[in-house]
Design a protein around this nucleic acid. Structure first.
Length: 149
DNA sequence: AATGTGCGCAACCGCTAAATG
DNA sequence: ACATTTAGCGGTTGCGCACAT
């Protein structure tokens, strides 16, 4: 029957990770490497589902993460890759060392999307927006875009 | 000074593809 | 060949902070 039993099991923690949980996860991955997310939580003494552990490691705890602001180069590269690949965040992330799909996705949805809209460019198609749909949103977001650059 | 609003980030949820028995 | 389980992906939400009113 169906679907992952991974999170159905009772008494798993949710929400923000504590410092102790982070430390346990990092220590375990250092010792045993990535993979086997299914068995990791109990092996590491964590009351989390494997899914949650994986996400935390990939998006936050990995040692090679760059973090911090995106450079102009990265910004342009993301736009370019998105125009080629669409919302394939993992593929885009693979071409940006030190960045994660989640981070890029967030960055896109906040900064870049807004910027393109402000320029009258459809963030989905990367083509100029048609006026009817845009005349108001363009005006609304133009100031925001201007200030962000 | 207090309250409202918008933004950015971290994390969760549901779905799908791949792997395995 | 099929059924089941697991890993991974993308969309979405919730919370905390900063700024504006």
């Amino acid at each position: 029957m169906g679907r992952s039993p991974c999170c159905e099991k009772a008494h798993t923690n949710k929400g923000a990770w504590t410092r102790e949980e982070d430390e346990r996860l990092v220590a375990h991955v250092r010792a045993h490497g990535e993979g086997c997310w299914r068995s990791l939580p109990s092996a590491a003494g964590l009351l989390r589902c494997g899914k949650s552990c994986r996400l935390r490691w990939i998006n936050y705890l990995r040692p090679d993460l760059k973090r911090g602001n995106f450079s102009r180069d990265e910004d342009e590269l993301i736009v370019k890759l998105h125009s080629l690949l669409g919302n394939k965040w993992s593929l885009i992330a693979a071409r940006l060392p030190g960045r994660t799909d989640n981070e890029i996705k967030n960055y896109w949805n906040t900064h870049i999307r807004r910027k393109l809209l402000g320029r009258g460019i459809d963030p989905v198609t990367h083509r100029p927006l048609t006026d009817a749909a845009t005349s108001c949103s363009r005006a609304a977001s133009a100031s925001a875009a201007a200030s962000s650059e």
